[in-house]
Simulated assay, not measured.
Amino acid sequence: MEENRWFLSTIQNDFRAGRIDFDNTISLLEKLQISFDLIHVKHVFKKTLDKRKERTINIEDFRAIYRAIVHRLEFQELFRAYSINGKILSHSEFSEFLRREQGETEDCEKSALESILKYEPIEEVKKRRQMSFEGFIRYLNSEDCSIFKKHQRSVYQDMNQPLCDYFISSSHNTYLTADQLVGPSDLWGYTSALLKGCRCLEIDCWDGSNVEPVVYHGHTLTSKILFREVIQVIDKYAFMASDYPVVLSLENHCSPEQQEVMAECLRSILGDRLLTSTIGDTPVTHLPSPE
């Protein structure tokens, strides 16, 4: 009951109009301070829409999406293994979890209390020095449980060497979201790659109808998307995950006429973001650095 009240009080204002779209769903998940994978959310959201044949969802749909994303089976199994009633972890139960599963050997009771106060979102539960499943999820998804080194989450390498001195996070056939023979080409491929921090994207360019170049896996049954729209998506998402340069790998199969259209798209859409000449006035002897 307390979890339901917390959940409703957190999101009810966002459902004043009754229904929300995908962008609002993402905003709500961020508001709930839940870590999530954007591709997974899109997949679950699409499955929900396919059932309803609509473009928006109601509050019960959002609850289902939330549970599908957050309530992972292994989290539930761990929680139930230490919670006597399967609903709440007491201070002592959570202390035992820290000792047995997390390998903490010193003052587990103090660590348990600190984590409860830090991660438990339901005030009534927090006051009783207990942890709900929502708090347990937040704890497991937190930095305190991460196996990665915190100082390496941001760029710590020397980024002033020539561009060719680095391994560059690259995406092959970026436009494909399924197989390479009959699968769909989708702009989401570029959005997803850029949001993951990719700095090199592949664009396979072919002549399209109405003198509009298209992107697809040539000589296959994959669907086609407009080159112009690909560049628009890249312009929008290029620097959301990283400020470092994006390399566009153009596999060019277009006629001279449609190559002109490609060049016009790059110039008009990317504008000042497109590097069209060397940097500075000094003679160039090597590639510029990422910085």
Rank of each mutant, 00 (worst) to 15 (best):
E77D: 02
L28K: 02
T105L: 12
D14V: 10
D23F: 04
S35Q: 06
K110A: 02
T25S: 12
D61Q: 00
L38Q: 09
S27C: 07
E101W: 01
L98E: 04
H43S: 02
R19K: 11
R99L: 03
F36V: 12
L38E: 10
L78T: 02
F75G: 07
F79L: 08
E101A: 05
D50E: 03
L78K: 02
Q12W: 00
E104L: 12
S90P: 09
F22H: 06
L89W: 11
I69L: 12
R63T: 13
F94D: 13
K53C: 06
S95A: 15
A68V: 05
Y82S: 04
E30Y: 11
R16D: 13
L28A: 05
E54M: 09
C108H: 07
K42F: 04
D50V: 02
I11S: 01
F15R: 06
F97M: 10
F79N: 07
S35K: 08
Q102V: 11
L29D: 03
L73N: 04
I84R: 05
L78Y: 03
Q76D: 00
S90Y: 14
F45I: 07
S27P: 04
E77V: 08
V70K: 01
S83G: 13
K110E: 03
A68F: 05
A112Y: 00
H40C: 14
Q102A: 12
N24C: 08
D37A: 08
F94N: 10
L98K: 02
V41S: 10
D107R: 06
R80P: 01
T56L: 09
F36T: 12
Q33M: 05
E54G: 05
L49I: 07
I84A: 09
A112P: 00
L28M: 10
T25G: 10
V41L: 15
I84S: 06
F94M: 13
L89N: 12
A17Y: 05
T105H: 06
I69F: 01
K53N: 00
I34T: 07
I11Q: 00
K31M: 07
I39L: 13
H91I: 03
K47P: 02
E109G: 01
E106S: 13
F45Y: 13
R72M: 09
R72W: 06
N13Y: 14
Q76E: 00
I26V: 15
N58Y: 06
K110W: 01
L49C: 08
Y82W: 04
A64H: 03
